[in-house]
Design a protein around this nucleic acid. Structure first.
Lengths: 185, 185
DNA sequence: TTGACAGGCTAATGCTGTTAGCCTGTCAAG
DNA sequence: CTTGACAGGCTAACAGCATTAGCCTGTCAA
């Protein structure tokens, strides 16, 4: 597998992002960590935005890999396994996670299928119920961003809130499955 | 009620935020909309951060007011009323909403009680169940940010996902109420 | 040997927040 | 009245940001 200069640039940007957060990712810093000057970067990438898109795409792949591993584990309730993996991955890569979710997704610029793969695992874990999958996804995303932004009080039992949320939604899936037409009782 | 120059500055910043998004809020733009020059702003505020904190504090008040009005409405399920108000307010003030949630909350710099008031309504709507309140809050926050970031596919029934999520969590509250010790069946 | 091109470079531009230092109008104290 | 302080403007300037223009050099194919 050949490593182009562009790949090196993206990787350097990724390292800076993890280590120094979003503000640490400047064109000068990226260039410096490669031993060149900032304007030279533009021989390989169009602009900083393209760099961010590459990082985001990378993030989706990593995230989907984490989901896959979690589901493969097996014994757990699938939804809970995904939820754990979601939280763990996000807390392990806070800056990348925020980069991926802070802004409208630049779908057109992302490689085909990269987003879908990640979403597919969530859908699978919720037995294909789209509304529940979206609710679970939103819940997980909300939990993570609130935790990353220190919005929960210090004494909050965050794990309990996760269990409560996921169990509630899973129960709803089960109910819908048993009673697909939504007939009453 | 006296309006200080500082108030005018904060208000001008708020208008710019609503109209042109976060990037539109520059010290020069704020100054220009008041007919003065950027450096003069520093006679009234310490730095841009202080300005953002003021906008955030304002946002919490607005949000809490919206919740209050929603709960006062009455006939609905309280949790659903709050959820609707949450979504509506956020979609009406997308830039302010993001400013409020994008970054770790600068709690020390916020006026006392401003955050608590907003949270209290959510807790009230969930019958005081803290885990469920946190789950519901995270769910709502996640739904809003995903919607604002265009993360749902165009054909997604967002309202249905809201209903699914809130109903799931409310059902869980009811269950816990009836069975507070968590005994089985 | 020539010519093209990849990939560096410096210099410069226009944006950002922010500081230093100056000036002027208002207003209270002597 | 006059004096002096101060509030609140101002210009000039700085450092850091992404980015562009234009130049130079080493490599490699024709």
């Amino acid at each position: 597998m050949i490593v182009t200069r562009r790949d090196e640039i993206v990787e350097a940007a990724g390292v800076l992002l993890e280590q120094h957060g979003r503000d640490g990712v400047t064109m000068r810093a990226i260039a410096e960590s490669l031993g060149i000057r900032a304007p030279s970067l533009y021989k390989h990438i169009a602009d900083k935005h393209e760099l961010e898109v590459a990082l985001i795409a990378d993030g989706f792949v990593q995230q989907a890999d984490a989901f896959e591993k979690a589901l493969a584990g097996g014994n757990d309730v699938p939804a809970m396994a995904i939820a754990d993996a979601y939280r763990t991955w996000a807390l392990d890569h806070p800056h990348l996670y925020r980069l991926m979710t802070d802004q409208p997704l630049p779908r057109d610029e992302l490689p085909e299928g990269v987003e879908e793969r990640s979403v597919a695992y969530v859908l699978e874990a919720l037995a294909g119920d789209r509304d529940c999958a979206r609710a679970a996804w939103a819940f997980a995303h909300g939990m993570v961003t609130l935790e990353l932004a220190d919005r929960f009080p210090p004494d909050a039992d965050i794990a309990a809130a996760w269990r409560t949320g996921i169990e509630s939604i899973v129960a709803n899936v089960a109910a819908t499955q048993n009673d697909p037409q939504g007939d009453q009782k």
